[in-house]
């Protein structure tokens, strides 16, 4: 009997870390990048929040458009006022899930290649998004990295004709999250 109780306690203690079902970050990073022969646009947002539910593979990520920081103050101003219209559409939101979730086991340390599929809302428009992502599980933390392209036209972000040679339609997004148990 005593042995059974010890076993029970031991199993509860051992199972406990796996029971942290949700992982969170509030300091996720998005880098945006666009390059033409005229102009390189680079910006960083270090205030991206995301929650990963390891029980079912659901992911949400959100940020505020005004948190993007550009090297050039004027480009930042144009980004907010003319293109993203952040006074009208202050948020960017992704909701989705890991599609091949049944094939992986995030309770074990390791590197996992996953596919994330969901919807991405930006500039008042919502579109489907599918992207490959690398998850690294290491001693209780999960880091996720992905990159994908967003077509400005697709999200009804207008580029004036005279700037079309300077700003590409496809903008690259590099995303890096370091999740901790919630």
């Amino acid at each position: 009997m005593k042995k059974n109780i010890i076993l029970l306690i031991l199993s509860v203690v051992l199972i406990y870390p796996i029971q942290a079902q949700k992982y969170i970050t509030k300091d996720g990073v998005i880098d945006i990048f666009s390059e033409t022969s005229f102009f390189t646009i680079k910006a960083k947002n270090q205030k991206v929040a995301s929650i990963l539910n390891v029980e079912n593979g659901e992911i949400v990520a959100s940020t505020l458009v005004r948190s993007f920081k550009f090297r050039e103050a004027l480009v930042e101003e144009h980004f907010n006022e003319n293109y993203m219209e952040s006074h009208l559409f202050p948020k960017a939101l992704f909701k989705g899930k890991i599609t091949n979730y049944s094939e992986i086991d995030l309770s074990k340390d390791g590197t996992y290649k996953v596919i994330i599929e969901g919807t991405f809302s930006l500039h008042g428009e919502t579109r489907n998004l599918k992207t490959p992502c690398t998850l690294v599980v290491k001693s209780g933390t999960i880091s996720g990295k992905t990159e994908f392209y967003v077509s400005l036209q697709n999200y009804k972000i207008k580029i004036e004709d005279q700037y079309k040679d300077r700003i590409k339609d496809e903008i690259k997004l590099e995303i890096h999250f370091d999740y901790k148990p919630m």
């Binding site: 509030k26 205030k47 929040a49 995301s50 949400v60 505020l64 458009v65 005004r66 948190s67």
Partner: peptide
């Protein structure tokens, strides 16, 4: 700091 808005995970966000 500069107020960037309200996020459903973080709440009110101030940056810089």
């Amino acid at each position: 700091g500069k107020c960037d808005g309200f996020d459903f995970i973080m709440g009110v966000v101030l940056t810089r």
